[in-house]
Every structure is written in C-alpha cells, then in structure tokens.
Amino acid sequence: MTRLSLEVCVDTLEGAWTAAENGADRIELCAALSEGGLTPSHGFMVAAAKLPVPVYAMIRPRSGDFLYSDLEKTVMLRDMEAAEQAGLAGIVIGAVDNQRHLDRDFLTVALKGTGLPATLHRAVDTVQDYLKAIEDAIELGFERVLTSGQAPKAEEGLLLLEQAVRLADDRISVMAGSGITAANANRILKTSGVSELHASCSSVKRSQQPQDLETRLGFVAEAGSKDTDGNAVQALRKAMDQFTETAV
C-alpha cells in the first residue's frame, strides 16, 4: 500500500513549519482556525510558499455558512489569484447555493480561472444531497474532497465516508477531517477506506501569566491559545504508517 497522505491545517507560519518538519505531507494554510479557517493574508502565502511540502490556501472570505454574495465571490476569485501569484501549490474552496447544493456555476468559474489544483472543503458536509455533491465535485474537476461525512466529527460519519469512497472509485480523493487524532486514525482509515487524513494536530498553550494584559483585554482566551503540536503530528503520522504496514 502506498503512503497515506496527512494534511495539517495551520494558521501560523511557525505552525506550518512544525507540521512540515514532523510528518505532514501537505499544509492547509488558513487564518483564524478558531473560525473554521479563513483566507490567509498574501504575505502569509508568500512566506509559506517556501515550505518543503505543498501548501494549499483556504479561500473563505468570512466565517459562517457557505452561501456567498456576488461581492464575496469577487473577493474569493481575487484571493485565488493571490495564492497562485504567491507560488502556492493549490487552493481549498467551496460554496453552496440557496437550495443547499454545491454552487456549480461559481465553482465552475473559480476552477476554470486558476491553474492550481483544488480541494473541495467541508461545505460538502452542509449540502442537501451528499452523494450528488461528491459526483458534482468530480465533474467540476476537484482533486479531492475534505469531509466528515456530514457529522460533527469524522469518527461519527463513517457510513457516509465509506459511501463517498465507493462512489468516488478513485476518480477523486476522499480526505476525512474533523476530530482526527492518532487514537482514532486506525478506525477511521479501516472503516471508511479514505486515503488521506486532515487534522489540526494542535494543543493548547496556556499563558504563563493568566492575568496578563492581553488576556484581560480579551486578545488571548483565558484557556490559552492553540497552535500546531509537533508531537501530535508525529503521533498521527506514525498511526497512519502503522495502518499501512498492517494493511499490506
């Protein structure tokens, strides 16, 4: 069995390097992971392009749902151009229409307007007809789809994940994401049949001074801030490699 791909989502440059140096095969570059991941700045994209692994930029102009206005779609197209100009390897994008189907019209324009490969993000988990959306993603030309099987956590969406893998039939890669850890990786891989996993591999870094000025002013949460944990990346990478070895 070939190596299973591990994608790590990050929202700091230090986190991106930590992920790359500890076993990530690809980076999903975001701003504000606390909001589910938003479009990173152009400067962040340029700096991340120097990483030794492929970097895909999240194209998401705001938090919330995936029904975008024409103004927001214009911003997204410009951000895609910025990602390409920065030298990144790909983009991560998604959108739905007011009927809760993939917004095929916009996504067709978006994918035809870039030379970068694209991942369909978890907008797919909000659609009315999940398996139709997988087929739509294939027809639109997406490289992969990131999904939790329409569940809050991938471990709870294994049935739909397995159905997506069977429907895809190697025409598109299905990447499981949301709540992925070294502890549940084996079960998710074995049950669903996905060939890629997506995780933040983060841990909370608590302030040494809980009542410091940044915390009191609300810039830093009292519980601390999250960032990429190299040990978590290594542990997940090891679990994936062990699964590959036992599956041969």
Rank of each mutant, 00 (worst) to 15 (best):
N186H: 13
E156N: 08
A49K: 15
A183C: 02
A183M: 06
H198P: 05
V165S: 02
L77T: 14
D212E: 14
A31C: 04
A232E: 15
D227T: 10
I138G: 01
A151T: 07
E14H: 01
E28H: 12
V109P: 00
C9E: 00
S202F: 07
A24M: 12
R60E: 15
K112D: 03
V124I: 07
A83L: 10
P152D: 14
R144A: 15
L160V: 02
V46S: 04
F66D: 10
L102A: 11
E21V: 08
A182G: 11
F219T: 13
L159G: 04
A16N: 07
L189D: 14
R78K: 15
P117Q: 12
L120P: 06
E21D: 14
G179H: 00
N231E: 13
M240Q: 11
Q208T: 07
P52Q: 06
D129I: 10
A47L: 05
V55I: 09
K238N: 12
V109A: 06
G157W: 08
A221C: 07
A47M: 01
L167W: 01
I27P: 12
L107D: 06
N186P: 03
G64Y: 12
M175R: 05
R104D: 02
A235M: 09
I27Q: 04
A118E: 04
G87P: 04
D227V: 04
F44M: 03
K226I: 04
D169P: 03
E21L: 07
E139D: 12
K226W: 07
